[in-house]
């Protein structure tokens, strides 16, 4: 474990807490893409299949359970909570996210480390996570006003993977010198997808203006 990875995990956890706070405090999920949240449930379930079969550390196990639990809780809130589900606007959550599943799965069948169920699904989860934010970004571009908590949520969600890129650089040059091509490339694609969001987010923060993404 290094500082970049710990900071990345904490930033990721913080983004989820910001989202849960927004939904729980305002009893509203306006501006949040249910599709991105559903993709994240699939990402965590396929990523953490070894939750009960492989013990890495207490930290690792606890964080996996927290990520699976919170991602389920968010989808439950948005689908079934009597007040929150009324605030979900499915007309603006238009991205056809199921179209992401098959290409990621096929790519995982072609490009993986080992051809085992666990490894192919783990690889699938990395490819899927790289594109899971797309429905949310598309929704933000279409929504007129982005509330601060939603903007902060997306910012921290993008920042966590950027910190992981620093973690991979650190690990490769200063620790085990092992190439991890699949997480590296997926993580770079994932972080790159946030590039224009980061630009407009920081610009709005500097100019003390409301965050607005060009359509």
């Amino acid at each position: 474990m290094n500082l970049f990875r710990l900071a990345g995990d904490m930033t990721h956890l913080f983004s989820i807490i910001v989202l849960l706070l927004k939904i729980h405090a305002t009893k509203s999920c306006s501006g949040i893409s249910l599709k991105t949240q559903e993709l994240y449930v699939i990402v965590f379930l396929t990523r953490y299949l070894d939750l009960f079969t492989r013990f890495v550390s207490l930290y690792n196990t606890v964080m996996k359970i927290v990520f699976i639990g919170t991602s389920f809780a968010i989808v439950w809130y948005m689908r079934y909570h009597k007040v929150v589900k009324q605030t979900y606007n499915k007309d603006e959550d238009t991205f056809k996210h199921y179209f992401l599943l098959l290409p990621c799965f096929v790519l995982a069948l072609l490009l993986h480390n080992e051809f085992t169920t666990m490894d192919v699904l783990w690889t699938f989860s990395l490819y899927l996570e790289a594109v899971a934010i797309l429905p949310q970004l598309v929704l933000l571009q279409q929504s007129r006003n982005i509330d601060n908590l939603t903007g902060n949520y997306v910012f921290f969600l993008g920042a966590y993977r950027g910190l992981y890129v620093l973690n991979w650089i650190y690990r490769y040059f200063l620790q085990d010198h092992r190439a991890r091509w699949i997480p590296w490339i997926s993580g770079l694609v994932q972080t790159a997808l946030y590039a224009d969001f980061f630009y407009y987010y920081i610009l709005s923060w500097k100019k003390h203006e409301k965050l607005k993404l060009p359509a």
Partner: peptide, 10 residues
């Protein structure tokens, strides 16, 4: 092909 690096990341 040496065994792949451990999957110790989240």
């Amino acid at each position: 092909q040496s065994a792949q690096p451990a999957k110790d990341e989240l």
